[in-house]
Design a protein around this nucleic acid. Structure first.
Length: 572
DNA sequence: GCCGTTTTCGGCCCGACTGTTTTCAGTCG
């Protein structure tokens, strides 16, 4: 049972307890633990009882339940709760505007258990008979049911970024003197975003009208003087918050979050005799303002270094900021090389010279052309003869484009049995070899792990690309024992990739941090199949920042000569 | 249910908006 599955059970217990109207702090305890476990670098299943007890937010009771879950695959407490309610009731909880109290009311009052039953009851006007319900609420629920499919769920960071950039630009046109910024999960660089949060500080009241009248607005969910919410076409919810100019820092802090980071910060404020909200940091005794116009001042007043948004997840950043030990985070500009990209020789859209020029233009000093190997027949993958011929042409090209070094590489398939798709003599003749899994995804964990370990054991392999094979919001990664992969990669000097494709980001932030902590070096690559996609490197850099990585953790921050010397094939 | 340089008991983050209300509960972020 992996951490994701464990967290789901804990979160579902939280949902069920909420419908039962249980103690809210007990509910929070289950949700906190679930959130922490999702982002744990280690599998709970492989921990000892004492190690589980050391997880923040896990006490004696939850440690026991984790043990039960890992050993039996289920928890009695969870099953008992599920016996009290039909499991389909949890679907109702995910409707816009419907929370646990309402779900409980529907169930106890009308026996509603499913979305279909709810739709029917609302359509027949039966909901308004319930206490606190009226015709308007009924109509809202019907709308929420219709929008469920389209709006449900989260979207890729890159999509959210594009939608937000357009919206922010439009708002700035209406209030050029105001400070207008995208905040929330977007500013933290989360791999997916549930909505778009925008903050306007020092903007005229009319900005709210500009927002709700924005041409792409499909429906207005809420409209007030300081806060409005809309649905925009394409399925995003967008929220705008307006605060006075002097509250810019407090509001940036407050709306950037995350929830867990904010709760910890406000708790810290209380302990020090302050109150923190979106308008400022105030003394509890006389309500006087301590800080508010800048984030730096607020963190400083709480005895902390300013914390980069990407770290604000309550994963140790507050303690580090207190001790002045925050990392010097890597930035996109630190990346001198991009070692994974494709050309028209296989499934890319441009030739090597075009890719090299574009990479140079994007600020890179060196690249590697790494087309596919023959196992990917669909992509016109290279056999040994073509791979060596392609390499010869790339080396001819090297030196002809000012300011960029071009290495001849390959993205070689790791076959189902763990052998490499190309002969060792071919791999040995190249400048860099990236190895990756592109087929037989459904092997069991043992087989998949041995398969990748076999690739790491091949002395010609320098990098493992997209090590888990996940596609965000589409496909979970293959089952693999990452702890063993990290140990082997660290020992062999094989680098692991953070693949920057918008729907890969693989390794993710949690695993990249865990890998670094186990002594693995990382490489951040675009895996571009076109010149434009070279720009995806920014998402990989963002992921690395969320993983707490410093430039020294990432090989392609090195100048080209040092980079080559650091590759496994050239190390002694 | 968790947690402790004030605490092993008594706390646990904060505010805006909506709908159905005669002062507030529920939802959301």
């Amino acid at each position: 049972m992996n951490n994701l599955a464990i967290a789901r059970v804990l979160a579902e217990i939280g949902d069920l307890l909420e419908i039962k109207n249980e103690n809210p702090f007990k509910i929070r305890a289950y949700r906190n633990a679930a959130e922490t476990i999702v982002h744990l670098g280690t599998q709970v299943a492989e921990m000892t009882g004492a190690e589980r007890l050391a997880i923040p937010g896990v006490g004696k009771d939850l440690a026991g339940k984790l043990g039960e879950l890992v050993e039996t695959g289920t928890v009695r407490y969870h099953q008992e709760l599920l016996a009290e309610f039909p499991p389909t009731i949890l679907d109702l909880l995910h409707l816009q505007g419907v929370g646990p109290k309402t779900v409980s009311l529907f169930y106890s009052g009308l026996g509603i258990r499913t979305l279909d039953e709810l739709r029917q009851a609302a359509g027949e006007g039966r909901l308004r008979a319930l206490k606190g319900m009226g015709a308007k609420k009924e109509a809202l629920i019907l709308k929420a049911l219709d929008e469920r499919q389209r709006v449900a769920g989260r979207r890729l960071l890159a999509e959210a970024h594009d939608a937000a950039a357009t919206l922010v630009a439009a708002l700035r046109g209406h209030a050029p003197e105001a400070s207008i910024t995208a905040v929330g999960s977007l500013r933290r660089g989360c791999e997916t975003c549930g909505d778009i949060d925008i903050l306007a500080a020092g903007a005229p009241a009319a900005i709210m009208e500009a927002f709700t009248n924005y041409q792409l607005v499909e429906r207005i969910l809420a409209r007030g003087s300081t806060k409005s919410s809309v649905l925009i076409w394409g399925g995003f919810q967008a929220d705008l918050r307006v605060v006075p100019r002097e509250s810019l820092g407090a509001a940036l802090q407050y709306f950037t979050g995350s929830k867990a980071h904010n709760i910890a910060l406000r708790d810290r404020a209380i302990q020090r005799g302050f109150k923190l909200n979106e308008y400022g940091l105030y003394r509890l005794d006389d309500e006087s303002l301590v800080a508010g116009d800048s984030e730096e001042a607020i963190y400083a007043a709480l005895g902390l270094q300013w914390i980069p948004p990407e770290l604000r997840e309550n994963r140790g950043e507050i303690a580090a900021a207190e001790h002045g030990t925050l990392p010097r985070l890597i930035a996109l500009g630190d990346l001198r090389g991009d070692l994974h990209m494709h050309t028209t020789e296989t499934d890319g859209r441009a030739d090597a010279a075009t890719m090299a020029s574009a990479a140079r233009h994007a600020g890179r000093e060196y690249i590697a052309i790494t087309d596919h190997s023959k196992a990917l027949a669909m992509a016109n993958g290279l056999d040994e003869t073509r791979a060596l011929e392609h390499a010869r042409r790339i080396r001819d090209l090297n030196g002809r484009i000012e300011g960029i070094t071009i290495l001849a590489g390959i993205e070689c398939d790791i076959r189902a049995d763990g052998s490499m798709d190309l002969a060792d003599e071919c791999l040995a003749a190249l400048d860099i070899v990236i190895a990756s899994v592109h087929g037989a995804f459904h092997q069991d964990e043992q087989t998949m792990t041995e398969r990748i370990l076999a690739a790491i054991a091949n002395p010609h392999v320098d990098v493992i690309a997209h090590p888990t094979g996940r596609l965000i919001l589409k496909r979970e990664g293959y089952r693999v024992n990452t702890a063993r992969i990290f140990a082997a990669a660290a020992a062999a000097g094989v680098a692991l990739e953070i693949n920057s494709q918008v729907d890969r980001l693989d390794l993710d932030d949690t695993l990249a941090r865990a890998a670094r902590d186990r002594g693995v070096k990382l490489i951040i690559d675009s895996d571009a199949h076109s010149p434009a996609a070279l720009g995806n490197l920014r998402w990989g850099a963002l992921t690395a920042r969320r993983a707490w990585l410093e430039p020294g953790d990432v090989l392609n921050t090195l100048p080209v000569a040092d980079f080559r010397a650091a590759l496994r094939r050239n190390r002694r």
